[in-house]
Amino acid sequence: MNERLVVVTGGTKGIGAAISRRFAEAGDKVMALRRADLDVTDEDAVHEVLGQLEVDVLVNNAGVSVSAPVHRTSLPDWLTQLEVNATGAFLCTRAVLAGMRGRDRGRIVTVASTAAHEGRPYTAGYTASKHAAVGLMRTVAAEVAGTGVTANAVCPTFVRTDMTARTIQRIAGVTGKSEQDSEAAVAGLSPLGRLLEPDEVAFAVAFLAAPEAGAINGQTIVLDGGGIQA
């Protein structure tokens, strides 16, 4: 297989770092972007960084999360989650899509969440943004159907990352439970019964991005041990 150019937004920490490492180990050229390299919500910046590249694989991984009940969710927090998690995926996808279609090859994979399939308390902005991101992938898939380009999403449950660690700390602070017990409570939200490891998400992304995965388009792979069957 020829070396491919793989772009991973939010590609230097947590899930993104695992994804970047997996593609690099497979022999691909990886551009692992952090916020300092690219603000995915800035239309001009996205065009400048991605618009001139021949991207073979785009992984929309940049994301943010804020936890609060709906009545305490501020408009800035709501908008930030929509802008990063959904609009960011849209801008990056749009920037590479024409080139992929022109070359008749390409893979777009968005890292969403089980929140894209269900609603849970205190996650209004996050859940709405992840639903939007999956909807975007389905629309792109419909537009590229029959070509060499595909668009899909992975939807993991809680992953062992800094973002999840902050969630666990918040739970411990509010409930008075230990962080160990708080982690167990988070892990118990899915049949998996544990936190996912970043490498497990990276495997699913690499699978969807494989040249042999050309028949998989407009799909979501849920990584939660079988709780959500999509």
Rank of each mutant, 00 (worst) to 15 (best):
V149K: 03
V149H: 03
V149S: 06
T150Q: 03
T150W: 11
A151K: 02
A151F: 04
N152S: 09
N152W: 09
N152L: 09
A153N: 04
A153R: 04
A153V: 01
A153T: 08
A153I: 09
V154I: 09
V154R: 05
V154H: 04
V154C: 03
C155W: 08
C155A: 14
P156E: 05
P156V: 00
P156L: 06
T157N: 04
T157Y: 12
F158K: 10
F158W: 12
V159A: 03
R160T: 02
R160W: 00
R160L: 03
T161Q: 09
T161W: 10
T161S: 02
T161Y: 05
T161E: 01
D162F: 02
D162Q: 11
M163C: 11
M163P: 08
T164A: 09
A165T: 12
R166E: 13
T167E: 15
T167W: 14
T167L: 14
I168M: 09
I168S: 08
I168V: 13
Q169S: 15
Q169Y: 00
Q169K: 15
Q169D: 14
R170N: 12
R170W: 10
R170D: 12
R170S: 11
I171H: 10
I171P: 00
G173V: 07
G173W: 07
G173H: 09
V174A: 09
V174K: 08
T175F: 00
T175E: 00
G176Q: 03
G176K: 10
K177I: 06
K177H: 12
K177P: 06
S178Y: 07
S178M: 05
E179M: 14
Q180T: 14
D181Y: 03
S182E: 02
S182G: 02
S182N: 05
S182F: 02
S182C: 01
E183S: 06
E183V: 03
E183N: 01
E183R: 11
A184G: 08
A185M: 15
A185H: 13
A185D: 12
A185Y: 13
A185L: 15
V186R: 00
V186L: 07
V186F: 08
A187E: 08
A187T: 11
G188M: 11
G188P: 11
L189I: 13
L189P: 01
L189K: 15
L189R: 15
S190W: 07
S190D: 03
